[in-house]
Write a protein that binds this DNA or RNA. Structure first.
Length: 199
DNA sequence: GGCTGATCATTA
DNA sequence: TAATGATCAGCC
């Protein structure tokens, strides 16, 4: 990670997240472990507008396309990643210089029974499709709160996946993402509804 | 303005 | 190369 604050995030898309990992002493780096290993806490910076609502979806995890048919909800990356999350809202308004963006009040969160059920419902549908070899039928339109979208260097990237005929083929790598409607509710649950900053 | 598909840097 | 951290960019 560069030490200088970038002018914009076009070529430093993960800069804010890496900054907080460093400042807060996260230990896992790019391993498949919670950011704070012995605490079981995942750190997520969340870009927000001036009114506090999320600007972007939240990446959760990559999808093991060949294994989805054998994975249960409790063993899934989505379930494990989202057991405990420290959400750190950060101003993401593009017109605001990165160095001037303010940090919101962080929130240590675990899914409520309702949220857990909502995520599981979407996961069962999406994972089920992949497990049945229908990964190519997935679009970002599916899933109420959880969605599947490309997660790759570019549109030419390929990873082995299960086809409908049971044979492996080369597919665009995908990841699970949380919709902004889901993360917006998380913040609303913690901070008073209707309370908005001036201007 | 919201949303989906595309893309970028860094690290192991 | 694949997984991590995400935001960009353009269509609707």
């Amino acid at each position: 990670m560069t030490t200088a604050v970038p002018q914009d995030l076009r070529r430093a898309k993960g800069w804010t997240g890496a900054l907080f990992e460093r400042c807060l002493g996260a230990t896992a780096r790019s391993r498949a472990l919670p950011d704070f290993e012995h605490l079981g806490i995942e750190l997520k910076t969340l870009p927000v507008r001036l009114d506090g609502r999320p600007l972007e979806t939240t990446f959760v995890c990559t999808i093991p396309l060949l294994d989805m048919a054998r994975i249960e909800w409790e063993q899934s990356g989505v379930f494990k990643k989202l057991r405990r999350v420290l959400w750190v809202p950060v101003e993401g308004t593009r017109s605001t210089p990165v160095a001037a963006r303010r940090i919101g009040t962080p929130l240590l969160w675990s899914p409520s029974p309702e949220e857990d059920a909502e995520l599981r419902f979407d996961w069962e549908e999406l994972a089920g499709m992949i497990g049945r070899g229908r990964v190519e039928d997935l679009t970002g339109h599916l899933g109420r709160y959880l969605q599947v979208r490309p997660k790759a260097a570019d549109s030419h990237a390929r990873r082995r996946a299960l086809g409908a005929d049971g044979a492996a083929f080369q597919a665009l790598p995908r990841g699970f993402y949380l919709r902004t409607s889901f993360t917006a509710r998380i913040l609303q649950r913690a901070f008073v509804l209707g309370a908005r900053p001036a201007r």
